[in-house]
Each structure stands twice: as C-alpha cells, then as structure tokens.
Design a binder for these strands. Structure first.
Lengths: 342, 342
DNA sequence: TTGTAAGCGTTATCAG
DNA sequence: CTGATAACGCTTACAA
C-alpha cells in the first residue's frame, strides 16, 4: 500500500533523505531548486508521509480522541460535527469512541487513545462516573483533556457545559407564568451530572414557585425514549395529573410526546410539554415543541478550541470552565392550563 | 505522557526487551513464570503499548477510516454506530471523515487515511463523484475499501447499497393502489447514485402506472431541507397540484412536511406524503410518516464485516456487491385522495 | 527459554 | 546547502 517512502525519493534523486525531509517539510536549509525538484519527484512517485513514523519521531500525531456515549444522539453528533470542523481546519483528525454507558468500553477506549498517542481527548464521561480515576490519571500524566456535557468536579481540567440547573428552573418559571401550578417531570439518570443538575433546577423551582407536584409525577426516564414513554404514560394516565410536563433530554421528550399521543391527550390544550435539546422533529411535529435548546455548535467549537489551545501551549494553564447558556425556544407545545380539567 | 516503554519494563526486570514483547503479546517462547512477572511489572509501571511503533513494525494499525458526507444526518450516524459496534468487537477503531459534499476535503481526508496507514476504508463517496480516480488508485495500491450508500460502477470493490430504484417504484405503486393518479416528487442530487436511482425508479413507475405528473411536480431538493421546502412549497401552492408527493431522503421529507404545514394543507386528507429514510420525528409527528426505510443497522454491519473479511484474508477476492431491501413502513401520512379537490 | 540486533520511516543533530 | 547517522518503541529472526 503506497510503498514509496522518503528513501525512494532520495535515491531516485541521488540525494539524502535528510534533504528530502527538509524539503518536504518546508524546513530551512534547502536550496530553492532542490526543494522544487524534491516536491516534484515526490508527487511523481506518489509519496505520502508515513504518519506512524512521523508521529513516533516528533511525538505528535495530530489526532484527538472524541468520547461520547451515543453517536446516534443528535446532541452528540452535532457537537462532534462542530468539533470536527474546527479540528479539521488545523489539520487534526478524530478517533471516535462510542461507549454507550458502558464503563468497561470507556476504559478500553481511553487506554486505546493513549496507546495511539493522541494529542488530546474531548470526552463526555459515561454517566456512572466509574472511571473518574482514569481521567485523573490521564491528566496527571499530562494528557490534554476537555470534558463536555457531563462535568466531574474531581477531575480538574478544561470543561464546557451548559447551565443545566437554571435551564429547568427557567422552564418551570415559564410554565408558572402562563398559569401552570401542577407540573411533572421526566428526568434522566440521577447519577449523571446533567441528570442531577436538571432535576435539581426543577426541584428548586417547584419549591420557589409553590408548584403542586406529587412524588410520582417526577420519574426517571433514564434519558431513554422507551423508559420515558412508560413514565409519561403512567403519569398522564393517573386520575390526578399535572397540567404540564418537563422532559429533560431529546429522547425523553420523544417518549413523552408519544405517550400523550397514545393516550389521546391533546397538546397543548390538555397538557403542556417543554422538551430539552432540539431536534428536527421538534419543529415539524404538531404541535411543534417548546424546548430548552443547547448551543451544540458552540459547545463543540469551544471544546475543540480549548483542547487546541491546551495542546499548542505547553505551559499547563489553569483549567477553564466554560458554562454556556441554554435558551427556551417557544413553539407550540405550551398553553395556559385548560380550566375544564381536573 | 505515559513514558514507560518495553525497555523500562525489561530493565527493571533485568531481562531483554524481546522476552517482554513476547510475554506481552502471548507469543510462545516464554516461560510461564517470566510471563507472569512481566505482566505484573508492566501493569505496575503503567505500561501501555505504543501503537505507532507497533503499527510501523507489523504494518497493521487496527484502524479504519469511515468517510461520510454528514455525520449529523441520522442515516449516517446510525450506519456509523453500527460499524463501530462490529469493529470494536474486533479491536479496530474508527477515524471519522466528515466531508460535507466537498471533494477537496474528501481528497484530503483520503490522503490522510493512507498516511495514517489505516487497514481499510468504509466510504460513502461524495455526491459529485469528483474523486473516483482516487478511489481507483487506492484499490490499485491494495487499500481495502468498502463503498456504501452511493455506488460507483467504475470503482471495483465491495459495496453495500439498497434497492433504491425499486424503493421509489414501489412507493408509487402503493400510492396508485390506494387511488392516487397525480403524484409529484422531490428528489435529491441528480449526479449522485442515490439521487439518480431513486428518481429513475419514480419515473419508471409513473410511466408504468400511467400516473399524471407535470414536469414541475418533479423537483430537486438536493437532499437538503431548505431546498426541499421551497420545491414542495412551489408544487403545493400551484393551482393544479398532485394528490401525493414522494420525498427522497430524510431531510427532504422534513422540508415537504413543513411546506404542507405552512400552507395549511392537511396530511393525509388533502395530500398524501411518502418519506424516505426513517427518523425519530417521523413516528411522533402528526400524522406519523409513511416512509421507505433503509436498514441502517444491517448496512453498517455488512459494510464492516465485508471490510474485516477483506482485511483479514489477504487473497484479494472478487468484489461482493450487497444489495439490501428497503421496506415501505405504513404509518399515517397516506390516504386515498380526497375527491373534493381539483 | 532467553537475548542480540536489525529494521519499520521519519526527523534532528551535527559534521562536512 | 547537504549528508551521514542516531533515535523514536516495537517485533522478530536468529543465535546462544
């Protein structure tokens, strides 16, 4: 596979490999004409640098690992796409690590990345937080690491997250303002940063605004559609039910909508719903979903930029903790509560 | 970063690097006890193999490149996820190449992949087919390559596609069966394999079934939502309009639905719609979309398996061309045409 | 069973 | 400006 190497080029030109290397890399110490000669011959022979050898020599691979729990989740694929855009511009490329919520897979991928000598890692650690010690070890050994989405306090490194707590808090506040006093919630994974924070924001708000909220109106959908569907179904089919429900990620939102549909509950007339994350379907479905949107594009850009900075400046700076704002995008799934209902 | 190497392990044990290497790789020629000693010491020192050095030596990197046009497109992220699953099981990992429809980026990424010495490539070539010669060259030089989604006849290698032509053909047939005789279509990029094939299937069907279809009922939405929206808007706001429209990928479907919504045209009462690809939103929106679904999971699995086979058997087999079936998933967006309308 | 040494393709140092 | 050579960390004949 593309056997031509620097030696071939050198030999066929009757010069040394050192000169060829310098010419190819635009390093000083080569005459204009030999440089041109080298470039030409290299192209002619179809020479392509061997990144393995190069990486080994210069201790740099121009590769970064991106670790997420689910690449099919539009949230992640949007962030990844954004990361890719900024890294590509700087000639870096991405190794994708799709770990589910499986700590073993996460650990294996992390090890693989160090074995591959990546220049840095951008990661949304798996929810359970089983591998925190590994992340700490990585940092201790000098690996450049940027965390996003899920923060881990015990891991001191650059991070990018959104204001999850105020996001759900504001959602409740908004519902309250249009008249809702009975609100339920399908939250995510309690042990995860986002799950925890969003739930917390919700709980603070229902207390602050004196919202009626029975215990079984607050259920964990585990950030999964099916689970969320079941929870929502339960809540919505109870005798007493809230007039509004907040879903705490995109899959959850989907599950809630499906439950409402199956139960034939008109949204927003009989039930208001606020979603989380944005997805194509949220703008086309009827009603279009009012939702808390995360700036995935900015998240990815920021994470990539932080990592690049960390990689390129070898002075180990203090960690930057970037907190981005979410925005409540008003569409059609929220209305004042129908007085006709219980 | 993780400086310990095989030499450190050897030295601290007072043995040779050769023995350490053999022990670590479970190669014969090492006594049980030294092997154990080595393993222990390696772990103790936090040794992690340097994949660059290893790859250079054994000419194998356990890395494959995956090239797609848009990782945000659920179709691709589903396929990638499926690819990742089978490759991970075999200890391979993925470099993601997100090329938009940009031939320059595609070329650069392809070169990068050979420079990185990947063991193989799974690619959905960019639509314009600008880089076919590069793909051919890759194959000629022995690169293992599996094409999916978009086929390129001139590139003789393994491939996985769906029966695009019969997919749209069957969609028309289905519409015709429920009574539609006036059908429009928003197709994709004519110069692309999928765009071309799907359109062709449609055209064959409207001829075979004697469907009424004005020229301006067949428009290119370029596989983009916005473009498709405009096309659909035009078609649907014409004086004479079809009673059903077929959209030829997921974004297109979205655009068509949005146009119908904005024009306040009830689907399926006043207009039937058949989509292409499946996406979450298609099941929750009202009406849920009747659509041609591709088996993304199987596509990914097949592509990955083909590549693995090609990599692991060094006898260059004849190319396998796998054609998978699509299925028409009936939901709610199709009904018999409303006789009340023009 | 163990060790020695060559070599994978680069880049960097240093001498010419 | 140019070239010989060492080194990156590993695997693998081959020798002991």
């Amino acid at each position: 596979m593309m056997k031509t190497n620097i030696k071939d080029v050198a030999k066929s030109l009757g010069i040394s490999t050192a000169t060829v290397s310098k010419a190819l890399n635009n390093k000083p110490g080569v005459s204009r004409e030999t440089r041109i000669k080298v470039l030409k011959k290299a192209k002619e022979l179809g020479y392509v640098v061997n990144s393995l050898a190069r990486g080994m020599k210069i201790s740099k691979t121009f590769t970064v690992g991106v670790l997420v729990s689910d690449i099919k989740n539009p949230y992640f694929s949007e962030v990844i796409s954004s990361i890719e855009r900024v890294l590509y511009a700087k000639k870096y490329n991405l190794i994708i690590c799709n770990v589910g919520e499986n700590p073993v897979k996460e650990r294996e991928y992390l090890e693989l990345l160090v074995s591959k000598k990546v220049d840095g890692i951008i990661a949304a650690p798996s929810a359970e937080g089983k591998n925190l010690s590994i992340y700490r070890k990585l940092i201790r050994h000098g690996m450049k690491l940027v965390l996003f989405d899920r923060l881990v306090d015990s891991v001191e490194t650059d991070s990018v997250v959104v204001d999850n707590r105020s996001a759900t808090y504001e959602a409740v506040k908004y519902l309250n303002k249009v008249g809702h006093t009975k609100i339920g919630a399908i939250y995510g994974i309690k042990g995860s940063y986002t799950g925890h924070e969003r739930l917390k924001g919700f709980l603070e708000a229902i207390r602050d605004f004196n919202i009626e909220c029975h215990d079984d109106w607050i259920r964990s959908g585990k950030f999964k559609e099916e689970e969320s569907y079941k929870c929502a179904f339960d809540i919505l089919s109870g005798k007493i039910r809230p007039t509004a429900v907040i879903a705490m990620n995109n899959f959850t939102t989907l599950g809630v909508m499906r439950a409402a549909k199956d139960l034939n509950i008109k949204v927003p007339q009989k039930m208001s719903i606020i979603g989380f994350d944005d997805a194509e379907w949220m703008k086309v479905c009827s009603p279009a979903i009012t939702t808390v949107v995360q700036p995935t594009d900015v998240i990815g850009m920021t994470a990539a930029t932080l990592l690049l900075d960390a990689i390129e400046s070898d002075v180990p700076n203090l960690p930057h903790h970037v907190v981005l704002k979410t925005t409540l995008l008003e569409r059609e799934s929220v209305a004042s509560p129908d007085v006709s209902q219980t």
